[in-house]
Design a protein around this nucleic acid. Structure first.
Lengths: 246, 246
DNA sequence: CGCATCGTTGATGGGGATCAATAGCTGTGG
DNA sequence: CCACAGCTATTGATCCCCATCAACGATGCG
C-alpha cells in the first residue's frame, strides 16, 4: 500500500539524498488525509496553523488578495510539496493556500515534524533546503514578472511546472496534468485572462505546446525552453531534466 | 568596541528573541571584514561559496542577468542581513550578489555557522526563520510586480526599505539612506529608468517623500503607506513600526 | 436542459517602454 | 582651480504591449 508520505519522499529525493532511516522516519509520520474541493482554501492569511499540509495528489496554489480585490498567485504546488512548511517557524501566515483542483492533502502536526527533525538531523537540513528552493522559485518568478514578455513568461511557467512534475514522476511522456484555468494562469503571471488566452493560442499555433482540458503536452521542448529562456538550475534538482527526444 | 556582528544581533533581535548565550555565541563568530566598492560583485551565479556574507554597513542587492542583458534586482539588503545565508544549504548560487554602494562586509565561514547551529539550537530556528522572511519579501515583490502600478510599487519599495532599516535602528527621524540609482530602482521594480524618474517626481510633487542625493525622507507616512497598500505583516517583525507622528 | 463557469474573439484605450537629447553632479588629472 | 569625462537625473515625443470592456461560443454539471 502506497503510504501518503510516498510523494513527500519522492520530492525530497529529487532535491537531496535520503537514507533508509530517513525514509522510514518520513513514512511513519502521523498524518491525517483529507479531500479538498477545487478552490477550497486550506489555510488563510493570519491563521496560525498547528499542522503542515502535504499535497498528496492534485494541485494547489498560494495567493494574496489586495484591498481592491486583485489576486496574485504566488506559487503553484504539485504533489510532494508542503506549501506551508514555513508555518513551522513563522507565527502567522501572510498569504492564503488553496486547492486549485480536487486534491488529496495529508496534514502533519507541527509537533511531529519538530520531533522528526530533532531525531533525524539530516532531515532538518533537507527540509530547510526545500524552503530555500521555494524561495529560489519566487526569485525566478520575480525575474519573469519584471523582465519577460507575456509569451516568454507563460512559456517559462509551463517549463517549470512540467519540470517539477517530472522530478516526482508525475509526467507521462511529454505531457502532464495542468488543472489551472486561464484566469489562474493570468493571476500567476500578472496578465489578464484575455491576454493569457491569446498568448496560449500563439504558443499552440507555433507548435510549441498543446493545452486542452487541463492537460499540457510539450510538442517542442527545445523551442519552448528557448522562448522561456528556461534554465532549471534554480530548481536545484539532483538530476536536471534532459529531454529524451522530440 | 562595536563588534562586526553587532548588526547581525540587532537584525536577529528584530525578528526573534536572543538569550545572552545566543548573543555571546554570535559575537564570537570568526569573521573577516572587507571593504567593497559600489557595484562590486561579492559572489556570482554558479559560485559555491564556503563563507557567508554579513552586511555590516552599506547596501547590497541580489540580481540576475538574462541572456539578452536585462537585469532584474531580486532583493535589496540592509545592514544586519546575510544575503547569501542560503549558500549553506544550496550547493551553487543561482544569482549574483553585489554591493550597491561602498560597504563593509563580514565574511563568516560556513563551518563556523554550522558549528554555531549545532551548539545553540535556538539559533538554527532563528536563522531558518530569517531565510523564511527573505522568502516572504520575495512573495510581496511578486505581488507588487504583478498587481501594482508603478506609483504604488515604488511607494511600496520605499516603505519596505524604510521599515527594515528602522527595525535595525538605521533611520534618523523620518529619513534614511537610500544609495540606489534610479536605474537600480527600475531594475528592482521592472520599470524603465525614465518611468522611475517621472513616478518619483509625482511622489515628491504630492508631498509624500523627499529623495535627493541618496537620502530618503518620508514626508507623509500615512498617505505613502496608503498609496503603497503597505502592510508590514509580511516582514514578521517582533514590533511593527508605529509612526511616532507626522 | 438550463445555468454557471470557462474559453474565445473583437474593439478601444492607456500605462509604461523606448528613443533621443539636455542638464546636473562627481571625481580626476593637468 | 578649472576642464573634461562619465555617470546620473531629467524632459519631450512616439509607440506598443497588454488591460479593459463587451459579447459570444463551448463545456460541464445538477
Amino acid at each position: 500500500m502506497p503510504a501518503d508520505t510516498e510523494m513527500l519522499i519522492r520530492k525530497l529525493e529529487s532535491i537531496g539524498e535520503l537514507s533508509d532511516q530517513d525514509r522510514e522516519a518520513l513514512a511513519s509520520l502521523p498524518v491525517q488525509v483529507r479531500h479538498l474541493e477545487a478552490d477550497q482554501d486550506v489555510v488563510r492569511e493570519g491563521d496560525r496553523p498547528s499542522v503542515c499540509c502535504l499535497l498528496v495528489d492534485g494541485f494547489m496554489h498560494r495567493y494574496k488578495v489586495l484591498p481592491d480585490g486583485k489576486r496574485q498567485i504566488l506559487a503553484i504546488h504539485t504533489p510532494g510539496d508542503v506549501p506551508d512548511l514555513q508555518s513551522l517557524f513563522l507565527r502567522h501566515l501572510d498569504h492564503n493556500l488553496a486547492a486549485s483542483a480536487p486534491s488529496q492533502a495529508a496534514f502533519i502536526p507541527h509537533e511531529a515534524l519538530r520531533a522528526l527533525m530533532r531525531q533525524v538531523l539530516t532531515l532538518t537540513e533537507l527540509l530547510w533546503r526545500d524552503t530555500l528552493i521555494d524561495a529560489a522559485i519566487f526569485r525566478e518568478w520575480i525575474v519573469a514578472m519584471g523582465q519577460r514578455s507575456a509569451r516568454s513568461h507563460l512559456a517559462h511557467l509551463l517549463c517549470e511546472v512540467f519540470t517539477r512534475l517530472r522530478a516526482v514522476g508525475m509526467t507521462q511522456d511529454h505531457s502532464c496534468s495542468l488543472p489551472l484555468t486561464q484566469a489562474e494562469l493570468g493571476d500567476a503571471c500578472g496578465l489578464s485572462t484575455v491576454h493569457v488566452n491569446r498568448t496560449l493560442q500563439a504558443l499552440r499555433g507555433d507548435g510549441l505546446i498543446e493545452l486542452q482540458s487541463h492537460r499540457l503536452t510539450i510538442l517542442d521542448w527545445a523551442r519552448l525552453k528557448e522562448v522561456a529562456q528556461f534554465d532549471p538550475a534554480y530548481l536545484h534538482l539532483r538530476q536536471p531534466f534532459v529531454p529524451t527526444r522530440l
